[in-house]
Design a protein around this nucleic acid. Structure first.
Length: 119
RNA sequence: GGAGUCGGCCGGGUAAUCGCUGCUUCAGCUUGCUGAAGGGGAGGAAAGUCCGGGCUCCAUAGGGCAGGGUGCCAGAUAACGUCUGGGCGGCGUGAGCCGACGACAAGUGCAGCAGAGAGUAGACCGCCUAAGCGCGCAAGCGCCGGUAAGGGUGAAAGGGUGCGGUAAGAGCGCACCGCGCAGCUGGUAACAGUUUGUGGCACGGUAAACUCCACCCGGAGCAAGACCAAAUAGGCUCCCAUUACGUACGGCCCGUACGGGGAGCGGGUAGGUUGCUUGAGCCAGCGAGUAAUUUCUGGCCUAGAUGAAUGAUUACCCUCGACAGAACCCGGCUUACAGGCCGACUCCGACC
């Protein structure tokens, strides 16, 4: 596996995985997104994205946000450690540009991994 | 050149780096994973989910009722509420565009305000006073009446114009126009025409009012459906053990039932596989047809994800980039849309 690849192994695949994170997680919140994180038993992080249709109406906007999140996650993958992360989009997230999204996410990756390791 | 109508097409490009997901060919092994190379990877609306069909499962002898839909005629089609051609009505100078466009001389119902009267018409103003009656010498006045030509109301007042006729009038009569019915002619039909006959003449509007008529419709949907199948709990069958112990029956013993071990079977949850893209397919050509469409021949394979891929960053160029993301698949409709290209046609103006 390449260092910055994004294969199925680093994704949360089933509803069970998501519920596992929801049940007991460390949260980090901003006006646009909420991050939930929890340590896992693997040697790498995993990512799940939840964008409600109610929050972001149009399908192409939801797709755009997901792609940016995945791309950013991929670039920061080595520094994150063994945690499961779920990203929840809030209303207004589709107003941000690609650059703004990247900046926002970069901060949040650092924040959430620090909080997890403190725990 | 300006203004406009109709039809068709396109929907940023190139390069580098880093990714995602099928396919093909190699290589490796732990035989379903890893690596390499090549090649494919959102739309004209993928959208709204408003119609129609395929497909799947369930139901179903046949027929009817109820309910829903469609609604000028003919054709196209797998089918349609779609499309094409035609008819009729309306709009536009025109190219063209728009129309739920069957039946109210089967029945029932509905219609605010105004107005005398609104559907078997109707005397408010007006017009008339011939006949009959009363008063009066008479003119005339009154009564009984007549009258739909005029005024006025209204969205709409029950054919129009003219002449005759009359007390005044009136299809009361006649001519012309219009209308109904029947016939004839043209057309597959809707419908149109009529130098034909006939009727004095309505049969007002409204059916996205009930209704009537004609035709169509079984239900649910890919989370359809099919297959594989842990862990845990439970079910059935067979075999072994029925020694000991516990519980129940009992005063106690014997005994019976349950709790044991092993093997097999079936249902089935998590999860996985499949359905899943070769199809009423696309392109080209000849032919049929006014056209929608279609026969035949040749060629092509053009996304298939499943917490859900089809992207990000940088650089350059240009006209500086809109609406917007497949989820079983097709045919339509509707709605959104920066900008651009092509063709045909119409009107106006100028030049020759």
């Amino acid at each position: 596996m390449g260092e910055k690849s994004f294969s199925r192994a680093v994704r949360l695949l089933t509803p069970t995985h998501f519920e596992n994170v929801f049940s007991d997680a460390v949260a980090a919140s901003t006006p646009h997104i909420t991050l939930l994180a929890k340590k896992n038993q693997l040697d790498h992080p995993r990512l799940g994205i939840t964008l409600a249709k109610k929050r972001i109406r149009r399908a192409h906007e939801r797709n755009r946000v997901k792609r940016i999140v995945r791309e950013s996650f991929r670039h920061h993958l080595p520094q994150l450690g063994n945690i499961d992360i779920v990203i929840i989009g809030k209303s207004g997230l589709d107003q941000l540009s690609n650059q703004d999204l990247f900046k926002l996410l970069e901060k949040q990756w650092n924040r959430i991994s620090r909080r997890c390791s403190e725990r």
